[in-house]
């Protein structure tokens, strides 16, 4: 069994995001980067499936500059077997990323793809669904529980929807996207980091995949949203009710 896990390099979730004064991007000076947290959850699930089923090759892949090798090494240190970096300089939107991932998928022929439901930088929540469409396979998004069935021919998934937890089964291969409560990813261990240094990290140029770094999206400007000002403190429940009735008129 082979599982493909795409990882994205994003600002650490605890970082305070600052927009550059000219609005051309976010400040990256002094910002710590990390693997997108939902991707870590996806990788953790792949590792657990390997532990449960006994044998699986786990391949992590990312698209971006050479600095993204750092996140691939983190993936290898967590326990992935190999890593693929598709070098690209320009910002690529979700559809562009999905096209590149589809090309990597065709080269690797994994049993399925496990990835985060969204990246915490652009918050798009699109790439997995687009990848599934391009590959002509099924998809299950927002997965909070995953189990392989039918001799690994299907997956049974719980997914988190606005209406509550939904259970579906899907034929494999498929693209499964991880939600927050699927698992809690392990920490990277020191022996893991040592081992990761010896694991293969292959660079595959876009040209050899036969795809381009095309994007439909043009970001013109970034800015901070208008802030919300702190209001008044009230001293009692009576004062609160009076303010809501007479001042805010919402009761």
């Amino acid at each position: 069994m082979k599982i493909l896990v795409p990882l994205k390099r994003v600002p650490d979730p605890d970082t305070r995001i600052r927009v550059k004064p000219d609005g051309s991007g976010i400040e990256t000076d002094g910002v710590k980067f990390a693997v997108n947290p939902f991707d870590s959850i996806a990788l953790e699930e792949a590792l657990r499936l390997r532990e449960k089923t006994g044998a699986a090759e786990i391949v992590v892949v990312t698209i971006g500059g050479s600095e993204c090798a750092e996140q691939l090494r983190t993936g290898l240190a967590m326990g992935a077997d190999r890593a693929i970096l598709v070098p690209a300089d320009a910002a690529i939107d979700s559809l562009g990323i999905a096209k590149i991932l589809a090309a990597v998928y065709r080269k690797e022929s994994p049993n399925f793809v496990l990835m985060g439901k969204q990246a915490i930088d652009d918050d798009s929540n699109q790439a997995g669904q687009m990848l599934a469409a391009l590959l002509g396979v099924g998809q299950v998004t927002f997965v909070s529980k995953l189990e392989l069935t039918d001799g690994h021919a299907r997956a049974r998934c719980s997914r988190e929807t606005d209406a509550g937890i939904e259970t579906v089964t899907v034929a494999l291969p498929a693209v499964l996207t991880a939600d927050l409560r699927l698992n809690e990813p392990r920490y990277v261990s020191l022996p893991g980091i040592m081992k990761a240094k010896k694991k293969p990290l292959e660079e595959i140029p876009l040209a050899s995949l036969g795809v381009s770094a095309a994007s439909h999206t043009r970001v013109l400007k970034l800015e901070r949203p208008a802030g919300r000002k702190a209001g008044a403190r009230v001293k009692s429940v009576d004062e609160l009710i009076a303010k809501l009735r007479d001042e805010a008129k919402v009761l």
Binding site: P11, H216, T217, R218, L222, E223
Partner: peptide
């Protein structure tokens, strides 16, 4: 559109 957990607003155009 909203990005970075609501901390950034992007002005964007789409081709196609």
């Amino acid at each position: 559109r909203v990005m970075f957990a609501g901390n950034v607003i992007a002005t964007v155009q789409l081709d196609g």
